[in-house]
Design a protein around this nucleic acid. Structure first.
Length: 753
DNA sequence: TAATGTAGAGTTTTT
DNA sequence: CTCTACATTA
């Protein structure tokens, strides 16, 4: 067990605690994953059968990484027998085994949130509910949060508090939508994400046999990111752990950032009350970041009231203060970041993958992208439209889904509609109506009823029969061929491939390539499964394809790139250099959070997560004006900047900002561009205080190659190269003290000597 | 039924 | 601004 020596005292104690409930509070960068993997390795070395260990994570990526790390410790043979995966994928697997106990087919479809929302829209239409009042997103989140609190559709209707809330918000009929939604999902042989957890609860609650079976199987349960669990997940855990109570939860309350989605921070705050003999281990030594970063992060999180006590510290180098950039506009902010990033890279040559630019909202990425592109800095954006959510992918998957489960309503609607085959809205509406009033699936309607009776014309009927025939043939293909062969055949026979191939536009080409990528993914899958002696039918591929996300699909080209992502997406990652952009009131913290204490605390935790991603240096930036939906808005710096202890900041203007009266928030129409360049005088005075690296108005036209220049920070040097045109003119300067640097002239403010 | 235009909405989103 | 979803027209 020499690997135990690689741990610090707190980590080792946590690893050695195997029996009984225990909770590991793991500060940011404190080696949480290491503890979890070593703990599993240790358990197995103590003779615990891997078959008896269940390890749950939130992302497939985390699960995969964990599995790899455990494999390298205990060998892949042992690791293969561990039950390690996401909540959703593990429970989906169990529910497919136990499907008959809950009345579902083994090959039930998993609806993703697009499917769910589409179904909700259909239902709203049938009930003639105004989608402007009953916003599908809102209805979905009401249903979702009910399910995550284990409130059934029937219980929802009887819950006066909930129904009262709905009534007050002018949406008294949500309970009806919920009921219909559940019925339709069931008729379609489909479960949504929340159902996977909900039905798992039902299984364990109502089926004593299953309960005993899984309680005995999972003698040891480990849960990562416990702060992000919801009530439904917690209840499953409690049910499974009730027999042995060997449950280990790992998490950090300070990094709980998904409460808006139903995660319940109380789960971690109250764990000790649930299991009174819980042993608590705190991992407080941070191995990731410099002292300045750790201290700054601590000083932020101190402002939250609800938290578990812990003191994160580090023995790493002191590092440098967190630098704050103040800029006049969002574009200048982006340029300042690109500029600083570029000069850092010129100095350190650490590779562009050492940098991350984090932001609160995806919309902020545009300006940043542009600035990076202009500076020829390679970057990669995470987030946005994920691979599996692209239309063409969903279209093809709809055929696969239908081949496996003909009752799948959402797949039916999608497949029948594309490629165009002369079956349109009117026909579908008729089928939908019949299905809804008879509680049937769409497939049952088109295969069982007399279509003429529901008013479908002969010509259309023949087209429908052709479609049914097609799906029948796909069903046979899916059953008999490997997933790759079947997937390829269906893509071709559905006409989808041809349709996309004939589209020669850039987007069309892209779509075609995406389809090719999916099919080559199928090929990999088929070969992998074969190698491991596992089933490789289309059904096996589709089992949890709905549970996959983009990050599971990282097709990394070898170019090292700057990472652009939302702070949410950055959780669990680390970068030597981190820029956090858009630190403005109403953006970060978000406008929708500032009226509620708990929402604001979540934003603050988000900020904490952002800062603690940084290993060497962190930068914060904000703009005084920002375009939002074509309008120019004045912005105030975020309260979060002030909340950081000033000792850890490189932000000389802060004092001036603190004393200023707050600028009334207003929207200025685009028509008055002068406003953008005419900030209040008090602010203008600040910009003269030299420390700010943003200047737009220096005259660079007189510079020439060979000129002796002076730079405020870098000192004296000589220009060796000039390139680009104003305003993006770039100079290469060899400085006497620090050597060669490339500078964008509009920012560098070089003085000709 | 299919294509084309316009209105409206637009935090974060592991699954 | 920019995407998407629906409605109108051909």
């Amino acid at each position: 067990m020499e690997f135990l020596n690689e741990l610090n005292d707190a980590q080792r104690e946590a690893v050695l605690h195997v029996n009984g409930p225990n909770m590991i509070i793991a500060g940011a960068g404190s080696g949480k994953t290491r503890v979890l993997t070593y703990k599993i390795a240790y358990m197995i070395s103590q003779g615990i059968d891997p078959f008896n260990i269940l390890s749950l994570t939130f992302t497939n990526k985390a699960a995969r990484e964990m599995k790899e790390r455990v494999s390298s410790k205990i060998g892949s043979g042992n690791a293969r027998n561990l039950w390690m995966g996401t909540f959703h994928s593990v429970f989906a697997k169990i529910l497919r085994i136990e499907h008959s106990k809950i009345g579902y087919p083994a090959n039930f479809t998993i609806y993703d949130s697009d499917d769910s929302k589409s179904l909700i829209k259909t239902i709203l239409k049938e009930f003639s509910l105004d989608p402007k009042i009953y916003k599908p997103n809102l209805v979905y989140s009401r249903i979702s949060s009910a399910k995550n609190n284990l409130i059934s559709a029937e219980a929802y209707e009887k819950n006066t508090t909930i129904v009262g809330d709905d009534a007050r918000s002018n949406k008294p009929l949500i309970y009806k939508v919920y009921q219909s939604y559940q019925n339709r999902c069931f008729a379609a042989g489909a479960m949504d994400f929340d159902d996977l957890l909900y039905k798992m609860n039902i299984l364990l609650r109502d089926d004593a046999q299953a309960l005993v079976k899984y309680q005995s199987k999972f003698k040891y349960i480990l849960v990562d990111e416990f702060q992000d669990t919801n009530f439904s997940q917690l209840t499953i855990l409690k049910r499974l752990a009730a027999k042995f109570e060997n449950i280990c939860v790992v998490g950090d309350d300070a990094q709980s950032i998904y409460a808006f989605r139903g995660a319940n921070i109380e789960n971690i705050l109250n764990f000790k009350k649930m299991y009174t003999d819980t042993a608590v281990y705190k991992l407080e030594q941070n191995y990731r970041s410099t002292q300045y970063i750790v201290n700054a992060a601590n000083s932020i999180i101190k402002h939250n009231s609800e938290q578990l006590k812990k003191e994160v510290w580090t023995s790493n180098v002191e590092g440098e203060k967190i630098k704050v950039f103040r800029t006049n506009s969002d574009n200048e902010e982006a340029a300042a970041i690109a500029n600083e990033l570029f000069s850092l890279e010129m100095r350190n040559h650490s590779g562009y993958d050492s940098y991350a630019i984090l932001y609160r909202t995806n919309a902020q990425s545009r300006a940043l992208e542009e600035a990076l592109r202009r500076s020829n800095i390679p970057y990669r954006i995470y987030g946005g439209l994920s691979f599996y959510h692209r239309k063409e992918i969903k279209d093809l998957l709809a055929y696969y889904r239908l081949a496996l489960n003909q009752k799948d309503e959402e797949a039916f609607k999608r497949a029948v509609n594309y490629p165009a085959r002369g079956i349109g809205k009117t026909t579908i509406d008729k089928i939908l109506l019949t299905a809804a009033s008879n509680n049937m699936s769409l497939w049952e309607v088109v295969t069982n009823s007399n279509l003429r009776n529901i008013g479908i014309a002969n010509a259309t009927m023949n087209k429908l029969l052709g479609f049914i025939e097609l799906i029948h043939s796909f069903k046979a293909i899916a059953e008999n061929l490997t997933s790759f062969e079947a997937g390829e055949k269906i893509a071709a026979s559905s006409g989808l491939l041809k349709e996309l191939y004939s589209d020669k536009s850039v987007e069309g080409l892209n779509r075609y390539e995406n389809i090719q990528e999916l099919i080559s993914g199928l090929k990999d899958f088929t070969e992998n499964q074969k190698e491991q002696g596992l089933d490789n039918k289309l059904a096996d591929f589709m089992n949890d394809v709905a549970l996959l996300t983009d990050q599971d699909n990282e097709s990394d080209d070898d170019i090292v790139k700057v990472t652009l992502m939302t702070i949410h997406a950055s959780k669990g990652l680390e970068f030597p250099y981190v820029f956090v952009a858009g630190l403005e009131e109403n953006l970060f913290p978000s406008q929708l959070s500032i009226n509620s204490r708990s929402d604001l605390e979540e934003e603050r935790r988000l900020f904490y997560v952002a800062i603690t991603r940084a290993m060497n240096r962190a930068y914060l930036s904000f703009a005084l004006t920002r375009f939002k939906w074509g309008n120019l808005n004045h912005c105030e710096p975020s309260r979060f900047i002030e909340e950081i202890d000033a000792r850890y900041l490189d932000y000389p203007e802060m004092e001036l900002f603190k004393s200023k009266p707050s600028i009334p928030k207003k929207t200025i129409p685009l028509k008055k561009p002068t406003a953008a360049f005419d900030p209040p005088t008090r602010l203008k005075k600040v910009s003269d205080s030299q420390k700010v690296s943003i200047h737009t108005d220096s005259d660079n036209s007189k510079l020439f190659v060979g000129a002796e220049v002076e730079h405020l920070r870098f000192g004296k040097g000589k220009i060796t190269k000039l390139e680009g045109v104003s305003p993006n003119k770039k100079a290469t300067v060899v400085f006497n003290n620090i050597g060669e640097k490339q500078l964008l002239l509009k920012f560098a403010k070089l003085k000709l000597l």
